[in-house]
């Protein structure tokens, strides 16, 4: 069975100008393509979350450039790109009392569907509940190909 969980990279960001641009430069120089991206920030620091086409190389390149990096498993759920698409997923998530640490979304190239990235406490349980509810879970490979 294909790996249902998607690998995400998180990078620590101090709130100072130019750091995001430096990360983008490092990835560009290593020919790594960004599939999805979200920044979470507080008054003092930020965390950049990234899904890329080659996680291992991206981690290596960012570490070499001096960044603090960690990996986490997230779940990518495909939803229809129309009003109400997100609401349907969230109804299932909250109905099953799944604890969401954070989430973000991106739209697929075709424009037909959107993908919601969830960071769950219990990703395996979340995957089976969402699949039972009829949602398509995108594999790591599928996300990288998008």
């Amino acid at each position: 069975m294909a790996e249902m969980k998607v690998e995400q990279i998180a990078v620590f960001l101090e709130n100072k100008s130019g750091r995001l641009a430096e990360i983008a430069d490092v990835l560009a120089a290593n020919n790594i393509n960004i599939r999805a991206l979200a920044v979470a920030d507080t008054a003092d620091f930020g965390i950049l979350r990234l899904i890329v086409n080659d996680t291992a190389r991206a981690v290596q390149a960012l570490r070499t450039a001096g960044f603090t990096v960690t990996k986490a498993s997230v779940v990518a759920v495909e939803v229809a790109d129309r009003p109400g698409g997100l609401a349907e997923v969230l109804k299932v998530v909250s109905g099953a009392w799944l604890n969401v640490e954070y989430m973000y979304a991106f739209v697929e190239k075709s424009g037909q569907n959107a993908a919601i990235i969830f960071r769950f406490d219990e990703p395996n349980k979340a995957i089976s509940i969402l699949q039972q509810a009829g949602f398509k879970i995108l594999t790591n490979e599928e996300v990288c190909r998008l």
């Binding site: 995400q8 998180a10 507080t42 003092d44 965390i47 603090t68 990096v69 640490e101 960071r119």
Partner: peptide
Amino acid sequence: EVSEQVFSDEIKTLEALS
């Protein structure tokens, strides 16, 4: 300084450390 040992993708973990 935040080392990889204490870094997390979750804000709440870093705030708890602070």
